[in-house]
Design a protein around this nucleic acid. Structure first.
Length: 300
DNA sequence: AAGCCTCCCAACCGCTATTTT
DNA sequence: CAAAATAGCGGTTGGGAGGCT
């Protein structure tokens, strides 16, 4: 098993990030919460350690991305299959693109969200290397900011009704706390195509493959983006509209948005393949699963 | 320097859909 | 065909990082 370890470690070196250390540290303090109801007794939950990651990577390479419960068992990880899958999909999977959402991705997300609603996994399929979780988190942050901004705006206009009609997009885009500088207004208004190519185009081969896979939608969106740029339709305006829509929805609680009448519900059924179906060749090597399953089960 | 605040994101939960037995 | 197992999805939470006052 020693060479397994070293291979796993080698695999992990691909994925190790600064956060890893943090997770490890956290897990020492809070990772041993085993009492939660949803997690069977004896199972770990909370942040993953580097060792666990390495172990998971190794066994996923061995058995493939399925039978997560089985994989969790034979790997010796005291984790649920569900937890293993999540860790793999959201963090360990090769081809994941890390870092900030680029302006182009931002715009694509907006486009797709108007099209699909909160179907994050569907949206993620058009954003190579991004996970549904990532996009979901991003969207949540953005909409929250926008809502806060629009509320502030509404409050301001209520107090000073006559002079408040003139608002700048910058003031809307930047949250009240926009001074933090975490996400600058430049990221929205200074959108250009080269930004994406710079950040995404030069990525690894997985990304290239993924890019190919999400061709039509992406190219359509690009086209639309160009049109939008030509008509000077900025991200600020996009987000303002989203905020406005959210505000309206919160008033009306229409049965459409997010429910059966949602535009997403009217779309033709989409194949439920995960985003990674397009890059299933990442495995270093493959084995006959059936044979191994049997062996492992017999052994256990 | 310290406390506060916001953002980011990993990870969990509950539920549904799909596949296997 | 039904039940069980598995996979996947969307919503939510909590903690760390870092900027601001």
């Amino acid at each position: 098993m020693d060479h397994h370890r070293s291979m796993a470690a080698a695999a992990m070196s691909m994925f190790s990030r600064n956060k890893q250390k943090k997770d490890g540290e956290r897990s020492s303090s809070s990772g041993n919460q085993e009492t939660a109801a949803a997690v069977p007794p004896g199972m770990r939950k909370g942040p993953w350690t580097e060792e666990e990651d390495a172990q998971l990577v190794w066994f996923v390479r061995l058995f493939g991305e399925r039978r997560w419960d089985f994989l969790a068992k034979v790997s010796g990880l005291r984790r649920t299959g569900k937890s293993c899958r999540l860790r793999w999909v959201n963090y360990l999977h090769p081809g994941l693109r890390r870092g900030r959402i680029t302006p182009d991705e931002e715009r694509l997300i907006l486009e797709l969200h108007t099209q699909y609603g909160s179907k994050w996994s569907r949206i993620a399929r058009s954003l190579p290397g991004r996970t549904d979780n990532e996009i979901k988190n991003y969207w949540r942050t953005r909409t929250r900011k926008q809502k806060a901004a629009s509320q502030a705006k509404a409050a301001a206009s209520a107090s000073a009704s006559s002079s408040s009609t003139v608002t700048t997009t910058a003031s809307c885009y930047g949250s009240p706390s926009s001074g933090s500088g975490r996400l600058t207004a430049a990221s929205s208004s200074a959108v250009n195509e080269s930004a994406l190519r710079e950040s995404g185009g030069g990525d690894d081969e997985d990304d290239a493959e993924l890019d190919e896979a999400s061709t039509t939608a992406a190219s359509q969106h690009r086209h639309q983006q160009q049109q939008q740029e030509e008509s000077s339709y900025t991200m600020d305006q996009f987000w303002n509209e989203i905020a406005a829509a959210d505000a309206a929805a919160s008033y009306m609680m229409v049965d459409g948005w997010g429910g059966a009448g949602h535009p997403a519900a009217a779309e033709p059924p989409v194949p439920s393949s995960p985003v990674w179906e397009y890059c299933s060749d990442y495995s270093l090597w493959r084995i006959d699963d059936e044979e191994y399953y049997k062996k492992m089960l017999d052994a256990s």
